[in-house]
Nucleic acid binder design. Structure first.
Lengths: 219, 219
DNA sequence: GTCTATACATGGATAGAC
DNA sequence: GTCTATCCATGTATAGAC
């Protein structure tokens, strides 16, 4: 619809240059891209017919690549998680001062509010966490846990701030950010209770710096 | 299954003391209780057959009380929201000192982690926020907004702390708490990344007090 | 209003030709 | 592997007797 950052190989023209393996892979890609749009838009209750239609293939073709609906769904979620994990922040951010660091990761986290695919994925994983607990656990262990871990490590190592419980502090920061995404975008709260993301970020930075400073004095 | 805080009138025996209106109301109650258990356990994709069976009535009886599946679902969510809103904290908490106040509302919010109905409702509302945006907007305007509003008002009025942006600060506190519920219970993260709720609460209290104190000095 | 029985559509999954 | 056509279970909603 609007973006397709998950498809990387259909910009070429369908010519003779492709071998059979490539052709197979491309069908699979088309199916996954169709499943992406349909599942993210309608949830797991989306029909296999709708997915096949969106992918532009016959339904049987879908079943020749994926055992059943659940397999297709799991494969898609795995793929999406990999995609968003790779966008994780492992860069040179660690050398930043505390204020810049917090501000930077806040911006990165909240920038996902503009990504329809991420917002829909969040809604989908939470919504299906009852039926498919493995998927939400995958999300937690692959995306949330490493993110909070890195944040806590930074707080522990940085000399400008000191917290009695960096792990819990990292959870507060992360929770404030993710919950803002859920409240404003996933749950459509931006109309009922609007707030520019800059205000949230400024307050988070203030709290962390002030509390981190105080922590040094009392230690 | 384990609790039925939403049923208040089936402890009496089915005797002559009931008039027709009462009987009708009780059927409706039975249906809503069945819908409660089935919808919260299986999501909106639960079948009307399953609901009727769980309620102990014929399917047609369900349709005589509710126009269609969507009406029943909406009525149930409305009912649940009313229930949990009434459990809101409008009491004498305002007279508490800052530390006790923050600690108290944190305990209350996190105590819902033990309530299967609340956790399931949260999962359901978020999960169906794509298909039924009105319901998530209802949740936001009836539960989240008033809660954050009261918290912000307290922060504004209290003399022990001062924040440049009490509304944003209230969002941070609320987000840290709700996201903890979502992460640990809704998304089953408590095994992959366990943390006693007391640690989160202590860190929240510390951050608020330290940052609120600093805010006074710099104003 | 409540039940049993049923109509009608849809969905997941498969069969068989190419 | 890919298509068209189809099976069969399930699901929403309704009809008709009491």
């Amino acid at each position: 619809m609007n973006s397709k950052p998950l498809s990387g190989s259909n910009s070429r023209t369908p010519e003779e240059s492709k071998d059979n393996v490539t052709r197979l892979t491309e069908k699979r890609e088309k199916i996954l891209e169709g499943a992406l749009r349909v599942f993210l838009a309608q949830g797991y209750s989306a029909s296999m017919d709708a997915i096949a239609a969106e992918a532009g293939v016959a339904k049987q073709t879908v079943y020749s690549h994926f055992k059943d609906k659940h397999s297709l769904f799991s494969a898609l979620i795995d793929r999406l998680l990999d995609h968003f994990v790779s966008a994780g922040l492992t860069a040179d951010l660690l050398s930043l001062d505390a204020a810049s660091f917090i501000r930077k990761i806040s911006h990165i986290t909240l920038s996902r509010m503009d990504d329809w695919e991420y917002v829909s994925l969040l809604r989908l994983i939470i919504g299906e966490s009852g039926r498919f607990p493995e998927l939400s656990e995958l999300y937690v262990s692959h995306m949330v846990k490493p993110g909070i871990q890195k944040l806590a490590d930074y707080l522990r190592a940085n000399q400008q701030v000191r917290f009695s419980d960096p792990d819990a502090t990292a959870r507060i920061i992360h929770g404030a950010l993710i919950n803002f995404v859920i409240l404003q975008e996933v749950m459509h709260g931006k109309h009922a209770m609007p707030m520019p993301r800059e205000r949230l970020i400024n307050s988070i930075v203030d709290m962390v710096l002030f509390a981190g400073e105080q922590g040094k004095q009392s230690s």
